[in-house]
Design a binder for these strands. Structure first.
Lengths: 187, 187
DNA sequence: ATTGTAGTATACCGCTCGGTATACTACAAA
DNA sequence: TTTGTAGTATACCGAGCGGTATACTACAAT
C-alpha cells in the first residue's frame, strides 16, 4: 500500500477541505476518514499546512487539465471555446458536490497576502486568465487582455453566486453576458 | 459606558472577523482587543455565533446604506447610477483595509447551506441584486432581472479578483463590461 | 445606608487543536 | 535469519478553543 496511502490521505483531505473548509477540518478527522492514523499522515506530510499546499497544487493541476479537456471536447474554434468555457462551468456547478472554487475559498480563509495558501490561489487564477487571454488572442479580439479579464470576472462571479445560492442560473447569465462582450470585442 | 461597551465589542469583533476571518478570530482575542473581558462579552452576546450574526447583520445594514448613498451622490439618472456602482466598488477596493466582501468570505468559511451565517450572506446578495434590478427597471432595460444578475456577477467577480490580487484593475474592467451590457440591454 | 446594575478579575471547565514519542505488527528483500 | 521499511496503536504534549463560576469594584438611584 506504499505510495497508495499517501495518495489516499491526500484525496481524503482534499475532499474534506473542499466540502467543509480548511480551517474547519482537523488533522484527526482526516486520519480517521482515511482509515489510518495521524502518525502515517505526518510521515508523508510534515505539517497540516504542507498538506493544504499539496491539496491546492494537485487541485490546480487536475482542475485545469480537466477544464481544458472539457472545453476542447466541446469546441474547436477559439471563439467557440470562449463560449464553451461557460458551458463547462455550468455543468461543473450542477454536480452536487460543488462548493465553489477551492482557491477562492482558500483565499477567503487565509486572507493575508503573504500567506503561501493565498499565493497559490493567485497563481491559479493567473494561469486561468492567461488561458482565456490566449483564446481571445487567437480569435483576434481587440484587446485580448481586457476581454480575458472581463470574462474571468464573469466566471468568478458566477462561481461565487452559485455557491451562495444554487441553481440561480448564474452560468447561463454569465454566458449571455460573455456573448455580448466577445462580439463587441471582435467587431 | 452602558450601551457603549456592547457596541465597542461588536465593532472590535467586526474588524477582526473581517480582517482575519471568522474562524481565525478567537473570543479571547476579541475581548482583549476591546479592552474588556470575556465575561462582559458573553453578557451581551450569548455565543460566538450570535456575535458573528450580529456582525453580519450590522454589516448588511451599514454597507448597503453607505453604498446607495455613495451611488446617489455620484449620479441622479438610473442608468448613470448603474455605472456609478462600479466607481463606488472601485473606490472601496482602494482603501487599504479592503479584504473582499464579508459575506462572500463568510459563506466560504461556513459552506453548509443550512448554516445561519451562510443564510445571511444569501440574503445580502439577494437585496443587492434587487437594488440593481430596480435601477435596471427604471431605465427600461429589456430584461431587468437578467441585466441585474449579469451586473452582479461582474461586481462579485471584481471583488473576488481584487481580493486575491490587489490593483489588478478589476473594477475598471468590470465597468467597461457593464457599459456594453447596459447599452445592449437598452437598445 | 441600601440595593441594584455594569463591568472587572481570575481561575476554571471539557474539548479539540496541531504535533510527537514509544512501542508494536507485517512483510519483503538480502 | 536478519534487517529495513511501511504502517498501526495509543498515549501524550502544550496551547488554544468556546464558555462558565465566583468573587470582586464602582457607582448611581432610592
Amino acid at each position: 500500500m506504499a505510495k497508495n496511502l499517501q495518495e489516499k490521505i491526500l484525496a481524503t483531505a482534499s475532499e474534506l477541505f473542499y466540502s467543509q473548509g480548511i480551517r474547519a477540518t482537523g488533522v484527526d478527522a482526516i486520519a480517521k476518514a482515511a482509515n489510518t492514523t495521524k502518525m502515517s499522515l505526518y510521515k508523508y506530510f510534515p505539517s497540516k499546512e504542507e498538506l493544504v499546499i499539496a491539496f491546492l497544487r494537485k487541485r490546480d493541476e487536475d482542475f485545469r487539465t480537466w477544464f481544458v479537456a472539457q472545453v476542447d471536447a466541446k469546441a474547436a474554434d477559439p471563439k467557440d471555446k470562449l463560449l464553451a468555457i461557460f458551458d463547462v462551468i455550468g455543468e461543473w456547478m450542477d454536480i452536487p458536490e460543488f462548493r465553489g472554487c477551492a482557491f477562492i475559498n482558500a483565499s477567503a480563509e487565509f486572507p493575508l497576502e503573504g500567506n503561501p495558501v493565498h499565493q497559490l490561489s493567485v497563481e491559479f487564477y493567473d494561469k486561468f486568465r492567461h488561458y482565456i487571454a490566449d483564446l481571445a488572442g487567437q480569435c483576434g479580439a481587440k484587446s485580448a487582455e481586457s476581454l480575458a479579464l472581463q470574462l474571468s470576472l464573469l466566471v468568478e462571479g458566477a462561481i461565487v453566486s452559485e455557491q451562495m445560492k444554487r441553481h440561480s442560473g448564474a452560468a447561463e447569465q454569465a454566458k449571455q453576458a460573455a456573448i455580448m462582450l466577445i462580439n463587441g470585442s471582435l467587431t
